[in-house]
Simulated scan of single mutants.
Amino acid sequence: MKDTQVDPMPQPETAERELWPTVWRGFRRKCPNCGSGPMLKGYLKVRDHCPVCREDLHHHRADDGPAYLTILIVGHLLAPVMLASYTAWQPDPLVMFTGFAIGTVTLSLYLLPRLKGALVAFQWARRMHGFGSSQ
């Protein structure tokens, strides 16, 4: 698979970076350049550089973007499910609250680091915030 191999030749600064394969590598929390090194060194902390290909990752400016996207996705997924389950079964409010609280927290904790990786990879692919510039 191409994502697990390190490119032996460095790419020139003007080389085109493919967007969707790069974002998919970031969603998997892998280095956007080589696809094999881990991007995160904790739950949400981005490494300064890839341990495999030595690509600098400290340029990222993810800030509140991953949290916003997580809230947006979780809200749009669970709101219709909540409405459908209430109209179909009319569960007790405490049961409904407990189930959806667990679902919301679980889905949010799953998506947050993956969306952060995807956002950092998007910035890398588009050469934003210092990625790809000769500094």
Results as ranks from 00 to 15, higher is better:
A62H: 01
T70Q: 06
A125S: 11
R47F: 00
H129I: 08
A84R: 10
L112I: 13
Y68M: 12
K30F: 01
V6E: 13
S108T: 14
P32A: 12
D92T: 03
P93F: 01
P38A: 05
N33M: 05
G103Q: 05
A101Y: 07
R25K: 13
G42A: 12
Q90C: 05
L72Y: 12
P21M: 06
N33W: 03
C31S: 07
P38M: 06
F27I: 00
F122V: 00
P38W: 06
A88F: 04
C53Q: 09
G75H: 10
D92M: 08
P93E: 05
V52G: 12
E16L: 06
A15R: 04
K30P: 01
Y110L: 14
W124N: 03
E16Q: 08
T87F: 12
T22G: 01
D3F: 14
P32D: 13
R17E: 04
V81I: 15
T106P: 10
V95C: 05
E16S: 06
H49I: 03
T4W: 13
L115V: 01
L40A: 07
P91W: 06
R47I: 00
C53H: 09
Y86S: 11
V105A: 15
L111S: 15
W24K: 14
G42T: 08
D3I: 13
G42E: 08
V23T: 01
S108E: 14
P66E: 00
A101N: 07
I102P: 10
Y43A: 03
W24E: 10
T104W: 14
P91I: 07
A88I: 04
P66Y: 00
R29Q: 14
L40P: 10
T4V: 13
V52D: 15
L77R: 09
G132D: 02
Y68V: 15
P91D: 11
S133K: 09
D3M: 11
A101P: 09
E13N: 13
Q11R: 12
S36E: 14
K30N: 12
C31W: 02
